[in-house]
Design a binder for these strands. Structure first.
Length: 811
RNA sequence: GGGCGAUUAGCUCAGCUGGUUAGAGUGCACGGUUCACAUCCGUGAGGUCACUGGUUCGAGUCCAGUAUCGCCCACCA
């Protein structure tokens, strides 16, 4: 390689270097693990949360890419066998929500298209959107292996889903049964407990009179039971009234019957200890099909539930005259009618908790239906033990408690969804109701029980909860269930990195499924980042209009600045704000580095590239900066190893800016311009600066990869010995050298004098350009000697002329 | 109803296993066109580490309690 002057453009323009640098990385093939990994190399595999296929980059993505890429680049530089499999998630319910809105605008709907055409339309839609997010992730610098790009609806995932379900079924961990589930009337599907988000709301508590049945069976106008309810519309599904067995006020009622308004159904009055005598009137209506408590009560008393809503929560034919009304309209009319009849006794504002669909916000309706469940008890116990016994560690540790609490109280997982976009449950029914689960792509050849041929079987129409396929991600992306080279080499993964908001949705599910299916923890470490909040600390949301578009920020500030701003001053699991001030500061740092490099390149003495590694003892400036570099390297490495990404970034950027730029380069200028310096000294001083810069680039590369890579190339052209590797991406992480305490102490004393002198100038109002005398009074002969030794730095740095007086020993 | 977190300079946040004058950035004040950089340089002001007790030679750091804010979990009509 011919060396010589290398140049960087005089101005740093954010966003300019990224495309060509990323292209160089891609062409190097370094994102893809080598076919023959180095012997005994440690392994580092990231588990990435696959973003929603229909989504577009938001700040949360920017944060996870930054954190993961930081770790990846660090471990790659350590020479480890690294892998980051990128991909996207089909996001069943979320994707349908998006497509349904588009169809609505086109005058179409799920119903008008039907399942097959709807799915065709979805695939076309996905084809348009599925690369968007990946391309955006690349703009942030994600050093993922794009040759292994995956999708939770690809054939590999589909097969993993079938096999996983079959194994769960064969192990008796799957059952199908009637249950009261969370139903979203807008999405028209079951949702899990996790997707049912509770919100405090102000509702109304109505007190309604249920007349007792008279001797003739007709309602007795003079005798009634008053019942308090927040949902009067559900009375259409009442099957009983209940009181507490010890409640004296109502004891005489037990065993009698009341007449349901409007429908004249006879309701037995029962006694059940679940009733709180202190609440309302002490008597409650029992509506097993629409209330979880009532469902349990009904079961205890052998009552048959009556469902009164259809899938869109309109009153069905069981509701008599109210049939066809929306549930809230039905409520209004029923309350009005009761009031007219004089049977509305009271109406009070009432604080209550209401479940809403996580996706669309609609009030969740408990609905009685037959569902697929996964038995979670044994799965959860293993997932719990893994963390308790330290085989998987969660960072920060406080989330281990939340994880444990959730798993200890887990309920069975309703995995079926009445949607179309997703993996269809591989279960078939024969006319006799037997269930056959098959993991074969073409389905079973016959009923497992009665051996009827496949032609007489029909497949379940429900699909899986999106998190079921996501829960297989760490291994379905590596070829599981086959014993592939990737599985052997990269499983289990090392670090699963994600936001704390999906610890239950995703992390816990991966642990449960991973342990059951592969007998090993899918990853050793769970690193949870905080959430990015908008200015003022509120959650970002499109409806609030406070979303900062990371793509715009990258255009304006550069990907390096966005990454640095998301890293400095953060700690795992804690929320953070991104402010314009922080972004500007980060961009300024990139600019600073660029200019420092320009100075180094521009100040290269002739033939400097011919100098080998200097062995002679350098100047104080050189020894000091090398010692500080050693300290910073050790600190940065330690922080990286402890996942203190914020501390790492702060340490390294601080070193580069303060120690290197503000002090070393200024001291080096003095030495480089010294007319008395020998050529070899000048070369040595410059080379030290170039070598330290090279290590700064290595240390900074994980967090600001683009600028450092570009500077590395220029530095390599000027001084190949400093860089050694053509790409910084694959350069080695620096080893911490020995510190030089003597040099550090000498520097500190010198710097104190300079700072004191500058302070005196400012206080005395001495013009910045004026060179004034400075009298130093050493405390002893050694101090005098030391002062003399650093005079050459003090004088230009403080713009003074030193007079070093005789030692004053009086103090 | 449980549980968790936060509370440190005007603002945004770091402070690991308790140890010398509590840090950073930004903002502010003042001064700077020195040939890398005004996306910069220099100097400076600014904190009873929410509050109350306790442990300790010593606490922002550990313990108990209180307050405010936020989050998670939870089938009471």
């Amino acid at each position: 390689m011919t060396s010589g002057r290398a140049e960087l453009p005089p101005r740093y323009v954010p966003g300019e270097v990224e495309p060509r640098v990323y292209q160089r990385w891609l062409e190097s093939g370094a994102f893809t693990p080598a076919l023959d990994p180095p012997e005994r190399a440690a392994r580092f595999v990231i588990t990435m949360p696959p973003p929603n296929v229909t989504g577009s980059l938001h700040t949360g993505h920017a944060l996870f890419v930054t954190a993961e890429d930081l770790m990846m680049r660090y471990h790659r530089m350590l020479g480890e066998d690294t892998l980051w499999v990128p991909g996207v998630d089909h996001a069943g319910i979320a994707a349908q929500f998006v497509l349904d809105k588009i169809l609505d605008a086109e005058g179409e709907s799920r119903a008008s298209l039907g399942r097959d055409r709807y799915l065709e339309r979805m695939w076309r839609f996905i084809d348009e959107t599925r690369d968007v997010i990946s391309l955006q992730l690349r703009r942030l610098g994600a050093s993922a292996d794009w040759t292994r790009n995956r999708f939770t609806m690809d054939e590999g995932s589909a097969r993993a889903v079938r096999v996983a379900f079959k194994r769960l079924w064969d192990a008796g961990l799957v059952y199908r049964g009637e249950a009261l589930v969370n139903w979203c009337p807008r999405c028209r599907t079951t949702i899990s407990d996790l997707e049912n988000v509770h919100r405090d709301e102000m509702g109304t508590l109505w007190t309604i009179r249920y007349h007792l049945a008279g001797p003739d069976g007709a309602p007795d106008p003079d005798h009634w039971v008053a019942v308090a309810t927040t949902r009067p519309e559900t009375l259409l599904g009442d099957v009983a009234l209940a009181v507490h067995p010890d409640d004296e006020r109502h004891r005489s009622l037990v065993g009698r019957e009341a007449i349901l308004p409007f429908l004249s159904r006879r309701l037995p009055i029962i006694a059940d200890p679940a009733v709180d005598p202190a609440f309302g009137t002490g008597a409650v209506k029992i509506t097993p099909a629409h209330d979880p408590d009532d469902y349990a009560t009904g079961k205890r008393h052998g009552l048959t539930p009556i469902s009164i809503f259809d899938e869109e929560a309109r009153v069905n034919e069981a509701g008599g005259e109210f049939a066809g009304l929306d549930r809230f309209e039905a409520r209004r009319q029923i309350v009005a009618r009761l009031a007219d009849m004089g049977d509305l006794e009271d109406e009070q504002p009432h604080a209550m908790v209401v479940g809403h669909c996580q996706r669309c916000g609609t009030v969740v309706e408990p609905r009685l239906s037959v569902q697929w469940f996964i038995r979670t008890e044994s799965l959860a116990a293993r997932a719990l033990a893994s963390v308790r016994e330290g085989r998987t560690r969660i960072i920060p540790a406080r989330f281990e408690k939340e994880y444990a609490h959730w798993l200890e109280n887990i309920r069975d997982w309703a995995v079926g969804r009445q949607l179309w976009w997703g993996h269809r449950i591989p279960a078939w029914f024969c006319p006799d109701g037997h269930i056959t689960v098959s993991d074969a792509p073409e389905g079973p050849s016959a009923c497992d029980v009665c051996h009827r041929p496949a032609g007489e079987l029909t497949q379940e129409t429900d699909i899986f909860d999106t998190w079921f396929s996501a829960g297989l991600w760490p291994f379905s992306t590596l070829g599981w269930p086959d014993d592939t080279p990737d599985m052997r080499r990269f499983y289990p993964n090392s670090v699963m990195e994600t936001g704390y908001d999906i610890i239950f949705f995703w992390v816990a599910r991966m642990m449960m499924l991973g342990l059951f299916l592969t007998d090993v923890e899918p990853f050793q470490t769970v690193y949870l980042h905080g959430l990015v909040r908008a200015q003022g600390g509120v959650k970002m949301s499109k409806t609030k209009g406070n979303v900062t578009d990371p793509v715009e920020l990258i255009d304006e500030m550069g990907a390096d600045a966005v990454r640095l701003a998301l890293t400095v001053g953060t700690s795992p699991g804690n929320d953070q704000r991104v402010t314009m001030a922080k972004l500007e500061r980060s961009r300024n740092f990139a600019n600073k580095l660029w200019n420092a490099a320009r100075y180094v390149l521009g100040s290269q003495p002739p033939d400097a590239h011919l100098a080998g590694q200097s062995t002679e003892r350098g100047s104080l400036a050189e020894r000091w900066i090398r010692s500080r570099l050693a300290a910073t390297t050790a600190d940065a490495t330690r922080r990286m190893d402890r996942y203190d990404l914020g501390g790492y970034a702060t340490a390294v950027t601080g070193f580069a800016w303060s120690d290197y730029c503000d002090w070393y380069l200024e001291m080096a200028k003095i030495e480089l311009r010294d007319p008395d310096a020998s050529a070899s000294t000048t070369v040595r001083v410059w080379t030290t600066g170039a070598e330290v810069l090279a290590d700064i680039l290595r240390l900074l590369h994980p967090v600001i990869p683009f600028v450092t890579e570009e500077v590395w190339a220029a530095l390599g052209a000027a001084h190949p010995a400093a860089t050694a590797s053509p790409l910084l991406l694959t350069a080695s992480w620096p080893a911490a050298a020995r510190r030089d305490r003597g040099a550090e102490a000498a520097f500190t004393s010198m710097a104190e004098v300079v700072r004191a002198a500058r302070n005196l100038r400012t206080e005395a109002g001495i013009p910045a350009g004026a060179v004034v005398p400075l009298r130093l009074v050493p405390t002893d002969a050694a101090a005098a000697e030391a002062a003399e030794a650093v005079r050459r730095y003090i004088e230009p740095l403080a713009r003074v002329r030193c007079e070093i007086l005789a030692p004053d020993t009086s103090a």
